[in-house]
Design a protein around this nucleic acid. Structure first.
Length: 582
RNA sequence: GCGUCCGUAGCUCAGCUGGAUAGAGCACCUGCCUUCUAAGCAGGGUGUCGAGAGUUCGAAUCUCUCCGGGCGUACCA
C-alpha cells in the first residue's frame, strides 16, 4: 500500500533523527501519531504526510521540522517537496507501471489482506420474526451485512454469518391464529379479524397470509376438510398448533428464498426454539443464578444489569412464568461465545439501541469482555415515491422487500442500500433507483465496466496475438508486447495526467478495502467504485487505447484490464453484477 | 426528562482519531459523437459547515450550552 509506504519513509526518518538528537528537542519518549494522505490538490504531489503536529515536540516551526525530515529521506522512485508542514511525494512512472503489473498478476485478489488476522467473528444480521414478509429495512441489513461479511473475509477475518430466527415467542401463536382465520375464509366460512382495534392487534391482518392459506388447503386437503368440519367458532388447539408450525416454516422458507435471491448467504439459521428445547436457556439462567446476579421481586425474576452499566434491572422470567425475549437472547449470545467466537458483531435497527447496555452487561457477567459485543446500529429506511416520503403505517399498504426488488432489481436495490453510511436515515427513492440515466450511480459503474470490456473485445478481434481470449486467458493482454514508457511520453498532457490518476486510484483500492473492513463501513466501497468509474471514463476520453503503435496499445490494454479486475473485485464484494455489455 | 443518531451547496450525502483555498453526485446552463459503447466527457457557481461559547498556533472535526428532526425509554418481540 503506497500510503503506508510513504508514511513509513517519514517515520523511519523521524526515528533516525531523534536518535541522533537532530530533530529539535524531540526525544524518544515523545509519542507522536502521523498519517499519510492523498492531497486534495494534486499539484502538491501524489501523497503527503503532514508533520506539523511534531512541532510541539521539536519546538521548531512546522516548515523547518518538515525540511529536516525530508532531507533525511532517501529518494528512490519518487520526488519530495516540502510546503508548509507537509512533506509531499511525487511517484515515478516506474512505480505506476509496477502497480499495473501487480494487478494483472494477482487479479481479483489484488487487495486481499490480513488486517483481520483470522479473528473469529460471528456476524448476526436481519434476524427477523418468521411472521411476515421482509420490509425494506430488512433489505438494508441484508445488503449491508452480506457486503460487510464479504469485505471482512477478503481482509482476513474469519466471518461466520448467522440469522437468528425469532420463532419462539407469542408472535408465532398470533401468526397461527391469523392463518387459521385466512384458511377458514378460503374454505368459505364467514369469519373476519376482530373489528376492535385493540383486539385486532393480536392478529396479522395483512393480506400476505391469503396465498399461504390457499397453499395450505392445496397441500393439506384432508386436514382442511377436518378444520372446516370441526369449526365451532373457537380455535381447535390441536389444529392451531399444526397451523402455527406450518405458517412458521412457510414464512421462513419464503424469507430464505428471498435472501438467496438477494445474494445474502448465511452459514446458519439459528432457531430460537432449539435454544429452549436444548435446555440452553435453562442452563444460562442457572449460570446467572450461580453468579448471583438474579433476584426475585413482584413475582418475577430480575437480572441486576444496572450494576453493569445498564440504566435499570431487567426481567428474566415474567410473573406468568414465561421468559422475556432478552432471556433467550442472552442465552443465544452465551452460546455464540461458547462456540469460540471472539467477536460478536450484530446489525440491529436503531429502534433496538436501548438494548445494547443490557446485552453488554450480560456478556460481562458471563465472564467475557463486553467489548467482544459490537453492535452496528442501522438507522431506518424511508421510502420516497414521487418525491413524497411514504410512512409505513396502518393506512398505507406496506411495501415489502419483494415488491421493491421486483420494481428496481437486485443490483440497484443492493447498491442503494449499501451506498449510504449506516448512521444516516436512508431515503430510498424508488424512481431514482429505477432510472437508467445518469442520476443512477449503479449504472454509472456498470457502464464503466461494460465500456472497458468492449475495448478488450474489439482488441482481441483485431489483434489476437496481443490480447488473447482463450478460455484459460480471458482477454489477457500479452505484457511482453507492451511498452509502458510510451504511456508517459505521449505528447498529450491530458492523457498522461488522467492515466496517472487512474492508476493511483487503482492502487487506492487496497486502502479502501482495509478501511471498510476495519471500520465496518461497506459504503466506502461504493464511494470508491464511483470515483474509479469516473477516473476510467476520463482516461477513456483522453487516451485512445486501440492505436497504431502496438506497444502503446498493449500498455493501455493492460491498464484497461486492470480497471476491469478492480471494478469486478469491488463489485463482487458488494455482490452487484458487472455486465460485459450494456 | 433521560439515552442515542442526525443537522455541511437548491436536493441526496462524503469529510468528523483537529491541519494546505470545505468535497462528490444529482438538478440547472453551454459545448463535444464520420474515430475503442454519449448510460460518457469538458466547462460554468453555489456554502453564516444548525446557533453560541470554550480549548488550540489552527475547529466542519474536540468540549459545553441551546435549537430542530428521527429512534428508543415494557414483566412486547
Amino acid at each position: 500500500m503506497l500510503r503506508e509506504f510513504f508514511l513509513n519513509e517519514v517515520k523511519t526518518a523521524v526515528s533516525l533523527l531523534v536518535k541522533d538528537k537532530k530533530l529539535g528537542q524531540m526525544s524518544l519518549e515523545d509519542n507522536y501519531n502521523l498519517q499519510s494522505e492523498i492531497p486534495k490538490n494534486s499539484q502538491f504531489g501524489d501523497f503527503a504526510v503532514n508533520v506539523s503536529s511534531l512541532s510541539r515536540y521539536t519546538k521548531l516551526a512546522p516548515a523547518k521540522t518538515a525540511e529536516i525530515i525530508a532531507s533525511e529521506i532517501n529518494k528512490s522512485g519518487f520526488e519530495i517537496n516540502v510546503t508548509a508542514g507537509f512533506i509531499n511525494f511525487k511517484i515515478s512512472s516506474s512505480m505506476l507501471n509496477k502497480i499495473i503489473n501487480e494487478i494483472l498478476e494477482k487479479k481479483l485478489d489484488y487487495a486481499k489482506n490480513n488486517v483481520g488476522k483470522g479473528e473469529k467473528v460471528i456476524l448476526e444480521y436481519v434476524s427477523a420474526n418468521p411472521t411476515g414478509p421482509f420490509h425494506i429495512g430488512h433489505g438494508r441489513w441484508a445488503a449491508m451485512g452480506s457486503a460487510l461479511a464479504n469485505i471482512m473475509k477478503y481482509s482476513g477475518y474469519d466471518v461466520y454469518q448467522e440469522f437468528y430466527i425469532n420463532d419462539a415467542g407469542s408472535q408465532i401463536q398470533k401468526l397461527g391464529k391469523s392463518l387459521y382465520i385466512r384458511i377458514l375464509q378460503e374454505l368459505g366460512i364467514e369469519i373476519d379479524f376482530p373489528s376492535d382495534e385493540e383486539e385486532a392487534k393480536n392478529f396479522y391482518t395483512g393480506e400476505f397470509l391469503i396465498p399461504v392459506a390457499k397453499e395450505f388447503i392445496e397441500a393439506e386437503k384432508e386436514r382442511a376438510k377436518t378444520i372446516k368440519n370441526i369449526w365451532t367458532g373457537d380455535f381447535n388447539e390441536e389444529q392451531l398448533k399444526y397451523i402455527s408450525k406450518y405458517a412458521r416454516l412457510k414464512m421462513l422458507a419464503k424469507q430464505q428464498a428471498l435472501l438467496k435471491n438477494f445474494r445474502t448467504f448465511f452459514d446458519n439459521f439459528f432457531s430460537e426454539i432449539t435454544l429452549h428445547e436444548s435446555g440452553k436457556v435453562e442452563n444460562c439462567i442457572k449460570k446467572l443464578q450461580e453468579l448471583g446476579v438474579l433476584y426475585e421481586k413482584d413475582g418475577a425474576i430480575w437480572f441486576a444489569s444496572s450494576k453493569y452499566g445498564d440504566e435499570k434491572d431487567r426481567v428474566i422470567k415474567k410473573s406468568d412464568g414465561a421468559y422475556t425475549y432478552l432471556t433467550a437472547d442472552i442465552a443465544y449470545h452465551y452460546d455464540k461465545l461458547q462456540r469460540g467466537f471472539t467477536k460478536l458483531l450484530n446489525i440491529w435497527g436503531a429502534d433496538h439501541h436501548g438494548y445494547i447496555p443490557r446485552m453488554r452487561a450480560a456478556v460481562e457477567v458471563l465472564g467475557y469482555n463486553p467489548d467482544s459485543l459490537e453492535v452496528l446500529l442501522g438507522q431506518l429506511v424511508n421510502l420516497v415515491i414521487n418525491g413524497e416520503e411514504v410512512r409505513m403505517g396502518k393506512r398505507t399498504k406496506m411495501v415489502t422487500l419483494d415488491d421493491l426488488i421486483d420494481e428496481v432489481g437486485v443490483d440497484a436495490t443492493r447498491y442503494w442500500m449499501i451506498m449510504k453510511s449506516i448512521d444516516t436515515t436512508l431515503d430510498f427513492d424508488i424512481e431514482l433507483a429505477k432510472s437508467k440515466t445518469d442520476d443512477n450511480p449503479v449504472f454509472y459503474v456498470q457502464y464503466a465496466h461494460a465500456r472497458a470490456c468492449s475495448i478488450l473485445r474489439n482488441a482481441s478481434a483485431d489483434k489476437p496475438d496481443i490480447i488473447n481470449n482463450t478460455i484459460q486467458k480471458g482477454f489477457e493482454p500479452d505484457l511482453s508486447k507492451a511498452d509502458f514508457n510510451l504511456i508517459w511520453i505521449a505528447d498529450d498532457e491530458k492523457s498522461v495526467e488522467t492515466t496517472k490518476k487512474l492508476i493511483l486510484k487503482l492502487e487506492e483500492y487496497k486502502f479502501v478495502v482495509q478501511s471498510a473492513a476495519k471500520n465496518k463501513t461497506p459504503y466506502l466501497v461504493t464511494k470508491y467504485l464511483q470515483e474509479l468509474a469516473c477516473d476510467f471514463h476520463k482516461f477513456y476520453t483522453f487516451s485512445k487505447v486501440l492505436v497504431e503503435n502496438e506497444k502503446l496499445m498493449c500498455a493501455r490494454l493492460s491498464v484497461v484490464k486492470a480497471v476491469i479486475l478492480i471494478l469486478k473485485s469491488a463489485m463482487n464484494l458488494i455482490a452487484v453484477d458487472t455486465p460485459e455489455k450494456m
